[in-house]
Amino acid sequence: MEKTKYPQVEMEIRKWGSKPSSLIQVLHGVQEGVGYLSQNVLKYTAERLNVPLSKVYGVVTFYNFFKTQKDADHIIMICMGTACYVKNGEEVVKAIENYLSIKLGEKTSDGKFSLQIVRCLGACGLAPVISIDGDDVYGKLTPEKAVEVIKRYQ
């Protein structure tokens, strides 16, 4: 494989070093830049870090954070930590599922939204909470408010 084919991987390897222990941090960096980890990227990374491909797959599938397929334009993460659960987070889940006509873990057919559960965003004072695209956090939601928030991203 040509080196220049995956500059993102090379960049991360320069940062973390070409050793097996860099694997997770390299994958993190690549996913942040490219959005997901394609099969070819994984193969290339395995070769460069001298880790068997099976081990790389083992790591990628172990951690929730890594994705092997292109994700939707907007990733909705619904917090299902204990505080959100006690404060009726389930209702918010149902409202969003109904509104987008998808279930948890699915993607809308137009590829605009995907719906995931996250184990605590650490914003328990604002429960129930959702985050969109990682950085935008919305709290003190009701089922109606949650749908309103999603509408803003359409």
């Binding site: 930590g81 204990t82 184990r119 605590c120 650490g122 914003a123 328990c124």
Partner: peptide, 11 residues
Amino acid sequence: DEGDPGAYMDR
């Protein structure tokens, strides 16, 4: 790696 869902002291 604060994992307890419902805790954010460390954060």
